[in-house]
Design a protein around this nucleic acid. Sequence first.
DNA 1: TTTAGGG
DNA 2: CCCTAAA
Length: 672
Amino acid sequence: MVFQKRSDYGSCGYPIPVMPQVPKSARGKRSVRKKVEESQMCAFDLLAAVAGDLLLEKENFSILNNATETPCPASPKHTVKVESNMDKPVKPEPYDQGSCNKSAFVSEVLVQRPVSCQIKGQSNSPKATISEHASISMKNDGFSKDGFSKRSVDDGNNRDLRSSPGLVPWKCSSGKNFTGSAESSEAHKICTLEDPMELDVKPPLFVSSDSSVEAPLYSNRIACAVSSPKSRNAVVDRDDDENLFRCTHPSMMTYRASRLQRVGNRRIRKLLASRHWKAALTTSKAGELGNNDAESKLVRKMCYTRQRVQRSSFKRRKVFGGCSIPASKGVSSKEGIFSLGKGAFKTEVSDSCTTPRGANGQLSSRIGQKALCESGDFHVKFSIKSFKVPELLIEIPETATVGSLKRTVMETVTAFLEGGLHVGVLLQGKKVRDDNKTLLQAGISHGDKIDNLGFTLEPNLRQAPETLTGPEHPHLLLPCDTVEPQPLSRIPAITAPTSVSRPSAVEPILTSLGPESDHDSVHSPTSESVQDNPTATNSRALVPVPDMDVKALAVVPLCKSKRSELVQRRIRRPFTVSEVEALVQAVEKLGTGRWRDVKIRAFDHAKHRTYVDLKDKWKTLVHTAKISPHQRRGEPVPQELLDRVLSAHAYWSQQQAKLQMKTSPAEARLLL
DNA sequence: TTTAGGG
DNA sequence: CCCTAAA
């Protein structure tokens, strides 16, 4: 299995090649997207730990002993279970196809990290290695339990972890919007600021909660909590499937990625479009071919998934009692060293990371406030319920069986994970790039914007796992990461993906095939009959691609958009000549202004073409027809078609004018 | 939901 | 393609 980055797509999912010149309108958006994307290129030792769990199954990984150790090229196989996470059936939205959930999820991960731990970086000191203080709990394990020597793993039950003694609540307020709830007041009390400027936090990390675009990583409930100061400390957990937190102890919080994050904010979604990866799969076995017509119909062509920026948002959670505020161990914010008490470590705040930002006095003060905390043992607790696996492209013969498809998906995901990926941290939708910052500095504290903390699994832009041991890809690394390998790069590369999924490997990595067309085989019984197979449920979402020419299936988790959550821009699918032909023909017949009819008439089977798309295409066609050939881009449209476009456009425009003249002569005359 | 247009 | 005001 080979992964290759799609060269025909930009990092945001927009095709670059055929359209060197991005439409003006798109440019702006792209820039924004890029902005977001770029900001996501970060590594985070904490997250590395998380990812480590995702990747490690049995290897003994000794990062602790050698933080800069290069990844071991040879490693055992991994089996990652791909499973549908859909708790509820979601009706595929044509228009939204590919818009969301095109990623798989993995099971919940709980991570605890001293607030002062450093975000891994170039100048990272061994003290801040992944393993040191990250307590990780894979709720639905199957992963390595001993990947990190010091890591405490509580597999199967994150509650234990939450209440484990080593986890010290962090009590400290942050944010200017902090309002005086009892808890917050108390938090203020225990905070003192010695040197606010010592802690530097990039402005973006503190964008207003109101900025939906910039802070896409929170769900509705979180947004509510943030926007409503009073509810800040209230019980806001409304998790559908779990009732883990009921208490609102401010000292410790758990963030949990919802498995079923609904992606609703298209604006955000479009910002988060990400790279595309292709997994050429040629693993179909002979015996699996041509067995079932239905299957072959089902497995039309290729499964195409985009690697997407993880859109998981983390629900703010509260932890029950049991999380008492520990006795102060003494914290010296001045020195940038926090004594975190038992099991904690000290991390120096390097000077380079503490550049005062005059323009952000506000921010500084916020952080400063946190820095004031005199009591040590502050931990930020994360509960990562699921991770989304970046989008993948899967190619499989249509004669392959569903079973082989499942395996293929499995292998793809597995290979992807094995191929090396790293975790990104997003706060308020902004990537936390500085790995050297402490959580505190980055604004990841228990009290503030952490509500909008997000994690992403990002593939290393390596073509093959072998490259794991090689130098990091510059563009994937932060400036400060160029020296030290990505946290996850230490994870041994697996070159031989398992061919059989193991149900217990890992819970929910949801990878489903998105609605790309309306083929009736979407809900093939076949897929339902294999419920025991985690990947089986995915098949429900599997749908063949329209005959037209689409050759890929989107592998997407099915989740409907939900406001305030991350959304994904649809993949761009340039119209082919045949499609244009069909469009022109339909418009000639029906005229403009009846796009729904046009859609039904000529693109009824192409789910990914909405009437809006057709309308847009016509618009561009008309424009294309008017400009000189050399100005045109993309797949050249036969002049003959363009001529028809112009004539049809002229004709129907005229008709429309006439119609208007009839219906409202007066107005029409006024216009003339 | 569709249209129509600007982005 | 996205976003939306209008219808």
